[in-house]
Amino acid sequence: MILDWLLAGALIGTAAGVLLTRDLYRSVVLFIIFGLLMALVWVRVEAPDLALAEAAIGAGLTGVLFLDALGHLNPDKAAAVRQKYRQPLLSGLAFLLALGVTGLLWMALVDSPQPGVHLPEIVDQQLLASGVEHPITAVLLSFRAYDTLLEVAVILVAVVVGLALRFSQEDQPAETQVLSPLLQKMLVWLLPLMLMVAIYLLWIGSYRSGGAFQAAAVLAAMAVLMRMSGTPIPGHSNLYLLRIGLVVGLGLFLLLGSVDLVSGGNFLAWPEGWEKASILVVEGALTFSLGMLLFSLFEASPAPKQASMTRGGGA
């Protein structure tokens, strides 16, 4: 209990630090620490799946994205000076609003009614029918497969928009830097290990914590690492392969989801007797696709290097 209060306090303190720190770089670093603390919190909330995802995505990938973006936005002196002007009226209103929201949320949380249905029980009862033994995987890919399907679609849309913005700029290949011989030697060991961890996470997802999302995050981290260290990624320059890789998860999901529909059943109900096989196939495709999607989100960000120079005249 004391540990929980301490952790909650550290979480709030780090969040306040993210918002209050003047130095933007420090703020981003605090934000990454916040992500790591969130991973610890998920362990305490007894959600190891979320802890895995948060550590890989929330702290790892988001941190890399923010640091990368920060490196490309030169410290804008003009904006920094403007920032100093305060608007007492607006600030006061914002404080009142935040205080009100806090109060309302607090009241709502304390007085929240007992829910009418007992979800964990229902999940337990139906778990056998889903074909997998891990309740979270069952919820994601069987009971609420619709959510997962739409989620993949949403990410695909985000990636398409990101890539469209990137391709409309005059593009140049990111400079491949050979950083250090030690890194190169280490990657020979690390990359296969990461691949193994990703496959392991995917496999145990059917009966323990883990699954497509966590595996995809590890896969994406692997690709980002390869990209940043200048290791060639097989098939990377082939645009068609990339596009096929991006949609294969969603495509297979839709295809297998419609099999039962064709034979007169429901959309996204896996064919009877083949539940586990279908879920595993879809999860495998999703892992690959989501890994590529997350990596593409990282890749979509590099802007041309001249950006800072061309804008020098305007500012």
Binding site: A47, A53, I57, P120, V139, L140, R144, D147, L290
Partner: peptide
């Protein structure tokens, strides 16, 4: 409860 955990997992991604 696995249901909100699964929803939050989608949310994080």
């Amino acid at each position: 409860d696995a249901v909100p955990q699964a929803l939050v997992l989608t949310g994080i991604v």
